[in-house]
Each structure stands twice: as structure tokens, then as C-alpha cells.
């Protein structure tokens, strides 16, 4: 059985999404959560480009992937900024410690 290009991309997509999903559930460190999110987004990128290629519209897939890359980078930057500030004020990066905060 030989896998087509699209099937190979789907294997990568599903694997990256699954690994990122596990990382999101298993990690309590804010930085690790951002790493897991990044892994999931890599899978989404692969899926977008593969879908564009199979439909004969690679450029459309590329333009969408470009938006995803920008959004992903901004999410990472904002997450890291939050992490740095939270670590400075609370002394921890544990997300459970954040959920105990009361206003």
C-alpha cells in the first residue's frame, strides 16, 4: 500500500495535532503550553498547504498559511509576555496557581 502525498500530509497533521493536544493536557507550565500550541499550529499549516495542493490551489493555501503563521507568532509573543509578568508577580508559571486567584 503506497500513501499519496495528501495522505502523508494528513498523517503528519493528525500526529502533530494529537501530540500538541496531549501536551496541552499534560503540561502545567505556561511556556510548555505555548510549545504545545505551536506544535498544533504546525500541523494546521501542513494541512492547509496539503489541502491547497490537492485542490490545485497552492497559492490560496499559502496565503491562508501566512495568516496562520502571523497569528501563531503573535499568540506565542503574548503568551510569553504574560508568562514573564506572571512569574515576576506571583513567582510561579503554574497555571493552576493562576486559576486560584480571586478578584
Amino acid at each position: 500500500m503506497s500513501l499519496s502525498l495528501f495522505n502523508i500530509a494528513l498523517v503528519g497533521l493528525i500526529g502533530l495535532l494529537g501530540i500538541g493536544f496531549y501536551g496541552l493536557m499534560a503540561s502545567r507550565n505556561l511556556i510548555r503550553i505555548i510549545v504545545a500550541l505551536q506544535i498544533m499550529v504546525k500541523g494546521a499549516l501542513l494541512g492547509l498547504i496539503a489541502a491547497g495542493q490537492v485542490n490545485g490551489q497552492v497559492n490560496l493555501g499559502q496565503s491562508m498559511a501566512l495568516t496562520v503563521i502571523v497569528a501563531d507568532t503573535i499568540v506565542a509573543v503574548m503568551g510569553m509576555a504574560l508568562g514573564v509578568q506572571i512569574r515576576a508577580r506571583l513567582g510561579t508559571l503554574d497555571v493552576r496557581a493562576l486559576s486560584r486567584l480571586r478578584g
Binding site: L66, T67, M78, A81, Q85, R87, L101
Partner: peptide, 27 residues
């Protein structure tokens, strides 16, 4: 994307902002 990049710059300013020393224990 332009709006996102603008908010990313604000996030970067937060990352680079002066950080106080970590507290010894919890709040």
C-alpha cells in the same frame, strides 16, 4: 495581520517591560 502585528508589538513591550524581583512565596 496588520492589527495582529500591532498587538504583537504591544506584547513584546510587555515582555521587555521592567520586571520586579520574584516574590519569595505566594501572594
Amino acid at each position: 495581520q496588520v492589527v495582529l502585528i500591532f498587538s504583537g508589538v504591544l506584547g513584546l513591550l510587555g515582555l521587555l517591560a521592567e520586571v520586579k524581583a520574584p516574590l519569595e512565596g505566594s501572594v
